[in-house]
Every structure is written in structure tokens, then in C-alpha cells.
Design a protein around this nucleic acid. Structure first.
Lengths: 111, 111
DNA sequence: CGGTCATTCCTTACAATGTAAGAGTCGCGG
DNA sequence: CCGCGACTCTTACATTGTAAGGAATGACCG
């Protein structure tokens, strides 16, 4: 279990970032769309719920349920927000990538 | 197996980037150092070999053995280089992250 | 009212990826 | 000869990624 070795996986990172961008409007389907838009790849809904649960368990995310009366149908939405801890992870992950990318712009820039 | 769904994981991406930067000098221990340097976290050697194997299997990486006579001891070094395919993945992964980061600079920039 | 629909959620099981622990090889210095 | 340092590789297990499928809730229409 080694609690100290917890890091962000690839998909987890994308999810956290999408949540940040969506602000108040972050719930599963919206996050899915956001990721789809950025990556061009569509993840399944199941992946999202599982990942959201795990992120919350680890303290990277917090969630609250919307009033069911205010919704049009289906179960009440579960809105999520990134915690301070999650934000810290995101920052350090970004810093590491920027470091590794530095100097490779020529090679990595798109065709 | 779903061959088309192959993506880069978190660590795999770091490894590929480190290999790119190291150029001719890319072999396991050096890659390990490079990643350590960028992330501040030390991965184990075992992780590296396993990951290198898997990346090669998937065609993101190619490897060749150094002359054993030219080495100081131990087994001959295994040098690796990123394939065109690997480079493409790296680019698209970077593009996705840049998209998601855009507009969040204020929040993500470091303390 | 009852049926169909769209929207949302969740569970389960399995595949892919991440990681640690530990062992094997070779050449050198003592 | 023996231990040491610099490499590599194997194995086994934990964590993360993903698809498939099911169920709740309310709108709309006949």
C-alpha cells in the first residue's frame, strides 16, 4: 500500500485538469466532454466514475450532490472540485514536464 | 488487447522524454537520473527495465547493445532511442496537456 | 396512466501500467 | 581468490485504466 508513493496517473491528471477548468460546472459527463475535446479520444463513462471515486478517496477531489429537484431528469448530478492537495500535485506534475520538455521544443512542436 | 487503444502511461511518458533528451547517452541508469532530476522522485531500477521492455514491445522505442569490451564491467549497456512512432505519441500527449493548461496559468504556476 | 426516452449515476471484472525486491554477469583492485 | 561497483534482468504484486452492463429519476407523449 505504501501510502507515501501515491502519484497521479495519466488519466487522473487529465481528469483533475478538466475539473479545474470547468469550475462550478464540473460533473462526470462534462469532464468527459472536456477531455474528449482536448485529446481527441473518448473515454467511457465507467472510467470516469471509477476514477472520480479514487481521486476523492485519495483527497485530490471533493464532491457534493446537486439538488435533485433542480435537475431535468436522471439522478442528481455529482459536482466535484479539486482540493488544495490535488492542486499541489497538478503543479508538481506540470513542473516536471516543463523541465523535461525544455530544449526539445524543436522536436516536439507539432507537424 | 484492442491494439488501437494503446496509450502512454504517466511513467512511460517521462521515460520517453528522458531518452529524447539524453540522445546517444540513453541507457537505464542515465534515464533514471534524468527523471530523478526533473521530478525529485527516485524510481527503482526494476521499474525502468520493465518499462523499457514494454515500450520497445509497443514500438515506441528501439534498443541496441554496446560492445561489451568497451565497458568497464557488468553486462553491456543497452542504449535506447525513441522511434518516430514514439515521438508522435509524445507530441500528441504534449498538445493535449498544453490545451488543458491554457487559461490556468495563474492557478498552476508555482508557489 | 403507462410507456419510451434521455440523462445521470454506479458496480463489476479485467487489462495495462507502476513498483519493489532480489538475483545474475563481468572486470577490477586488493 | 574474493569482494565491490556498475550494469542488467526476472518475478510478483499494487495501482491505475477501461469496457460492459445495470439501475434511478424525471420529462414527454399517447
Amino acid at each position: 500500500m505504501t501510502a507515501s508513493s501515491v502519484r497521479l496517473g495519466h488519466f487522473e491528471q487529465l481528469v483533475l485538469l478538466a475539473v479545474l477548468r470547468l469550475g462550478d460546472a464540473a460533473y462526470a459527463s462534462a469532464i468527459l466532454d472536456e477531455i474528449d475535446h482536448a485529446t481527441g479520444k473518448t473515454a467511457s463513462a465507467g472510467s470516469m466514475y471509477v476514477t472520480l471515486d479514487r481521486l476523492e478517496e485519495k483527497g485530490f477531489l471533493r464532491s457534493r450532490l446537486a439538488d435533485s429537484t433542480s435537475e431535468r431528469g436522471g439522478r442528481p448530478r455529482r459536482y466535484v472540485t479539486v482540493t488544495a492537495y490535488g492542486l499541489r500535485e497538478l503543479r508538481s506534475s506540470r513542473a516536471a514536464l516543463l523541465k523535461l520538455w525544455r530544449g526539445l521544443e524543436g522536436v516536439l512542436e507539432n507537424s
